[in-house]
Design a protein around this nucleic acid. Structure first.
Length: 415
RNA sequence: GGAGAGGUGGCUGAGUGGUCGAAAGCGGCACCCUGCUAAGGUGUUAUUCGUGCAAACGGAUCGAGGGUUCGAAUCCCUCCCUCUCCGCCA
């Protein structure tokens, strides 16, 4: 969320920023509502003052009569005020974060900027198989059973592939511990406020599963970012050292609007396991820490020896809360292209303002910055390994860095 | 699931219809005093919104939202949360 006063003082900048992101929102209208609201607010406050003064003493019958009509007027005005506040908020909620200066301007992901490419695209002297086929042949992925039990975009992973995921978990886990991150085990169901606070609502509401209860609905997290960032909601933090957390959770995504996309294999499902990092820091540290998160993500793919490229997401491809985002895309032989496996964003003070997360500052407590990044999205990591490490005989080699966690060095057909 | 008790400022905790944004204590900050490994004294110390260059002034906030009332921390309703006992349970 942006500061309404900032919007007022930097109208042109906000309009330009919206345009760059393809967000069509009438900022003039928003500001006029704000003006209207403030005028009304002043009138309401004047009336409240009157009432308050009279209420300090026992009033006469005459005054009680007057106050009664005043009360009725006030009630109407307060209702109006509430409407205007709601209208204002509705618009404010939709405003995207401000771009950082080095976020490329563009409309679609086609215009994302490839910052660098690392490693050679894996070469095969045979036609590399699709992970879905490998998964079936080696009895590692059962998509039919998944859809039988839960519907499309669900699956079962089996045997050594699950062991491989477990090895990846241990590997990423210990790496993040080494890097100074604190592991958290977090709620996977959150209240509406948590979703609003992190910026998934209202924009991406259709992507989130809702669990209706008696009264207040709960929502299944699409990423551990949500409970991690909300962990410090309404707090004033001591940020002499940035706070670094990570959590492993399933990520639940309804994938509304991606009908027919990536239907083969396990690239896109309603549920996948993921390790997510989140950092709380002072504003002046956030750009450096963003690079740090990216460096950790890179290190992981380098360790695994999987070729990748880094993409700096253009304005049109950024989510509402992000000011800047890097994606790592690994080489996916069966599709002969780079596919997103991680993403890390700076949300600057967008989330902290919504969630009221401040840090101790000399004169005045200020909103902190929040950053998030994928440690590992296991589904797509498994795809990368399966496809890049396959051999002509239909065997999947295990990356060296994982050997210490496993009792086997390759996955082959059991005879 | 059954029965009960609660949610007040950074913390503890008083306050059951008006003079309460709220006693007192602790903690924090400032100053004073005293020369000894520290104690005492005095003052100050919530958040947020609006008007204003500012000083300042005003509104709102006692878990959240509604209601009753001329007036609500206080009464009523709903929800959220915490705690205790019983039951159940990974």
């Amino acid at each position: 969320m942006l500061d309404i006063k900032f919007i007022k003082d930097n109208k042109d900048l906000v309009i330009k920023n919206n345009q760059s992101r393809g967000v069509d929102l009438d900022v003039d209208h928003l500001l006029s509502i704000y003006e209207k609201r403030n005028t009304l607010l002043q009138e309401v406050e004047a009336k409240r003052k009157l009432r308050k003064e009279q209420s300090k003493t026992k009033p006469t019958a005459e005054i009680i009569k007057q106050m009664k009509t005043l009360g009725e007027e006030l009630k109407k005005m307060e209702l109006d005020l509430k409407d205007q506040d709601q209208e204002l908020n509705l618009l404010l909620w939709q405003l995207p974060n401000l771009n950082l200066s080095d976020t490329p301007i563009g409309k679609t992901e086609e215009e994302n900027k490839i910052e660098k490419t690392v490693g050679e695209k894996t070469k095969f002297d045979f036609d590399p198989k699709h992970h879905a086929d490998l998964g079936k042949e080696l009895d590692l992925i059962d998509i039919e059973k998944g859809s039988q039990v839960s519907g499309a975009r669900f699956w079962y992973l089996k045997g050594q592939l699950v062991e491989l995921q477990f090895a990846l978990t241990q590997y990423v886990w210990s790496k993040l511990i080494t890097k100074g991150f604190t592991p958290l085990s977090v709620p996977n169901l959150v209240k509406e406020r948590a979703m609003f606070g992190t910026g998934f609502f209202p924009a991406e509401k259709n992507e989130i599963y809702e669990l209706q209860q008696k009264e207040e609905s709960l929502y299944l997290i699409g990423t551990a970012e949500v409970p991690l960032v909300n962990y410090h909601a309404d707090e004033i933090l001591d940020l002499d050292q940035p706070k670094k957390y990570f959590a492993m959770t399933p990520a639940y995504r309804s994938e509304a609007g991606s009908y027919g996309k990536d239907m083969k294999g396990i690239l896109r499902g309603h549920q996948f396991d993921k390790i997510e990092m989140v950092i709380f820091c002072k504003p002046e540290q956030s750009e450096e820490l963003h690079q740090e998160i990216l460096a950790i993500e890179e290190e992981i793919w380098q360790d695994l020896k999987i070729p990748y490229q880094i993409s700096n997401a253009c304005t049109g491809d950024l989510g509402i809360p992000a000011a800047k985002r890097y994606d790592i895309e690994t080489w996916t032989p069966a599709q002969s292209k780079y596919r997103e496996v991680t993403s890390c964003s700076s949300t600057t003070d967008f989330q902290s303002r919504r969630l009221n997360i401040k840090y101790k500052n000399a004169n005045k407590n200020e909103f902190c910055h929040t950053l998030n990044g994928t440690g590992m999205a296991f589904g797509r990591a498994l795809v990368s390994i399966m496809e890049n490490f396959q051999t002509k005989d239909g065997v999947i080699k295990i990356p060296k860095v994982l050997h210490q966690y496993l009792s086997f060095k390759e996955i082959k057909k059991s005879s």
